[in-house]
Amino acid sequence: MKIIDNINKVKAEFEIELKDCLDIENHQSLYRKYLSRKSGLIQGFFKEVASIPPEKKGMVGKEINDLKLMITAALDEKKKELETGDSRRELTDHSLPGRPQYIGRLHPLTIVLKEMISVFEGMGFEVVTGPEIETDFYNFEALNFPEDHPARDLQDTFFLDNGMLLRTHTSPVQIRVMEQQNPPIRIIAPGRVFRKDTPDATHTPVFNQVEGLYVDKNVTLAELKGSLLAFARALFGPKMDIRFRAGFFPFTEPSVEYDFTCVMCEGKGCSICKGTGWIEISGCGMVNPAVFEFVGIDPEEYTGFAWGMGLERIAMLKYRISDIRMFYENDLRFLDQF
């Protein structure tokens, strides 16, 4: 029907004109144009109603009325806006910057830790924590580091005056958990560890590890490989692969050093991976039966795997950060990037 088309046309026209209405004068002319009882466009439509077939009258009448209400409300609001607004009110300059706001951010190590926890929780691992001030027993002895063994030289330890020490790895949490729980056990233990290293681009005296431990019947080295591979792919993408190298840790046997595909070159070989295509991550292995004996788990019945992982190392790979000290400097130009 022609009248409906006209109603829609008028509606569209009004919307455009309303946008351009910036002062009271203009507002008044709009009012006259649309709502004047004598000459207004709405009034005009009402007059036309008389000439349309009776069965359509109701429908058209409603359309016109809706338009009238809409225009009335819009003009009222506009009027209020024009009256209360500053008379010198300028146009919004859409090109000016918005008002800056404080944007809070998690530390990159927290972000990566969260991601790691969520991957391992998805694999059925539970988060546990343990003390940072440790005894020689938990940090070394129960982990099968005999006293006066050169293996202790691998980790330069901070000692306290009372004979205790700052844990050099998160592995003591393994012992604490196995003392308390019976298998099956599946935990990860994130936390701070300490080594007497002078800070440089790759060392800080304080850093974080995420320990993992899985003890059950029939846990195998192949499964350790699969779990770490799953983690690598979850964090760095499906092209990741894992490589095992033989290693030595007193508390695991077999002991393994594990590498991931170089995240920089995807394994093609680059300066970061020294052309090998692999990036060294950390150590892992099967829980040494001697450790099981320390905590009273029968090594004939149960086997287990454990791994360590440096949180900073993973974050450095993920974000391509080359200096570990950045994490502890808290320069906002660093923190504001994550």
């Binding site: 706001q101 944007i103 809070g104 951010r105 994490f327 808290n330 923190l335």
Partner: peptide, 12 residues
């Protein structure tokens, strides 16, 4: 963080 704070890590 929702209050606009940046998280920091410092040595122990």
């Amino acid at each position: 963080v929702s209050f606009g704070f940046n998280e920091t890590y410092t040595y122990s």
